[in-house]
Amino acid sequence: MPLYVLAALLEIAGCFAVWSWWRGASVLWLIPGAMGLAGFAYLLALAPPSHAGRSYAAYGGVYIAASVLWLWLVEGSRPDWADLGGAALALVGAALILWGPRS
Rank of each mutant, 00 (worst) to 15 (best):
S26G: 10
L28E: 05
L28T: 04
L30E: 08
L30K: 07
L30C: 12
I31G: 11
G33D: 06
G33Y: 10
A34R: 00
M35A: 15
G36I: 02
G36K: 01
L37K: 14
G39V: 01
G39L: 02
F40V: 00
F40G: 00
F40M: 03
A41H: 06
A41R: 11
L43S: 04
L44E: 09
L44F: 12
A45H: 15
L46Q: 15
A47K: 04
P48S: 13
P48L: 10
P49G: 07
S50K: 13
S50C: 02
H51P: 00
H51F: 02
H51C: 02
A52F: 07
G53M: 04
R54K: 13
S55F: 03
S55N: 07
Y56N: 06
Y56K: 07
Y56V: 14
Y56D: 09
Y56A: 13
A57R: 15
A57H: 13
A57P: 06
A58H: 03
Y59S: 04
Y59N: 07
G60C: 13
G61K: 09
G61E: 07
Y63P: 00
I64E: 14
I64T: 15
I64A: 15
A65V: 03
A66D: 03
A66L: 03
A66V: 03
S67K: 08
S67D: 10
S67C: 09
S67N: 13
L69K: 01
W70Y: 14
W70S: 12
L71R: 11
L71H: 07
W72K: 01
W72E: 00
L73S: 09
L73F: 10
E75V: 02
E75N: 05
E75R: 08
E75F: 01
G76Y: 04
G76W: 04
G76P: 04
